[in-house]
Computed example of a mutant assay.
Amino acid sequence: MSEGQMSSQKRLPVTIITGFLGSGKTTLLNNIIRKNPDTRFAIIENEFGEMGIDGDLVSNDNTSVYELANGCICCSLSKDFYQSLQAIVERSDDIDHLLVETTGIADPMSVIDLFMANNTIEKLFEINSVICLADSATLEKTLDAEPESRKQIALSDIVLLNKIDLIDRESTTNLKELIVDINPMAKIVETSYAQTNGTPLLQTKAYSYRHIEETTISCNQLNLSLHDIARSNGSMINHNVKKHRHDIHAEGFIFDECFDLELFNIWMSSYLYFNQQSLYRVKGILNFKNKNKRCIFQAVKGSYIFEEGSDWKSDESRYSKIVFIGKYIDRDVLEKNLQKLFQERKPGKVQA
């Protein structure tokens, strides 16, 4: 893919829309286009989508639709997909935002990984957020029966609980608890008819270090051990140690000790490599010795980055807070391995 057209410009923001069959993805797409008339969109979707994008919305010069005829976006990342990206790059001066609508029966991991791990594409595009549409009336049964739906939740930055008018408040509370157990970092928005309800979906910048830092600090729904609770004095977390309903869930850790940067880097690289099929996202704030700023860490599949965050305050107790989202995470093994990465500890044998 040629880089010349966008080399001197900002990267094009990408919003990925996922959700199981019938959840309202294309309705959301139509709503986003309708509510942002001055934004010039490029849209990549499968030709065999559940319903079409409103023709009146794409009849002007502000929106271009690229339909993929050869298979699911998430499953194959076909030649059509790369050709669509190339066409978008070539006319980048006329495009403000790329929307990618995935099919309902697949997870978006491969699409996310493409925009993060492919060096050429990563220089041209940046992920704004992953949005999951969830049908409130059927979500509980879908999560129990369809592994792909659980992964869609796990990889999302925003979960729109659509068709909320069809269920009562108790059911809404139960659904939110299920979502939080899978992904405590996601923002949950109640809605009907896939309305955005004032949520700035196109300005999330969920993969920026600022957003990772803010959501990590504010997240208080982590599944932590009693030892973590005691060390945090109860100030940062929910006091419940949860039992998980599904195979995909989140595990969070808080440590007062400093991590050894070299040890952490070596171990994390290995851990991500050997757990690519079961570990979906890692986010956190890390404390390294002799660093005056928080280190913001995030990983998707085998790709990860460190970035500098805000300054540690002089009167602040430093800590590390890190969240792993994946399938069949062994909390005890993971915690023991992380503890071996503390500064000034002799490195022991660490399992990947």
Rank of each mutant, 00 (worst) to 15 (best):
T39F: 05
L155M: 15
L222Y: 02
I44E: 01
E101L: 02
Y207K: 00
A230E: 14
G326F: 08
N36M: 14
A250G: 05
D93V: 14
I32N: 03
V241L: 11
V282F: 12
N30Q: 04
K301V: 05
C132W: 07
S156T: 09
L29K: 01
L133V: 07
E344I: 08
S156H: 11
F41Y: 14
I53A: 10
L29Y: 01
N174P: 00
D38Y: 11
I248P: 00
N60V: 09
S225T: 12
L222N: 01
H97N: 03
F274W: 14
I182M: 11
T26A: 06
T215R: 06
G104F: 01
N62F: 15
K163W: 10
V282G: 07
M185C: 06
M116T: 06
G49D: 02
S84M: 05
V159C: 08
D93E: 13
A117P: 00
S225L: 09
S156Q: 06
D168W: 04
D56W: 09
L341A: 07
R169A: 12
K141W: 11
L226V: 08
K291E: 15
A194P: 00
L57Q: 09
L222I: 05
A137C: 09
V180R: 15
R245M: 15
E308D: 11
E3N: 06
Q195L: 14
D311G: 08
K336Y: 11
R91N: 08
N290D: 15
V180C: 06
T15S: 10
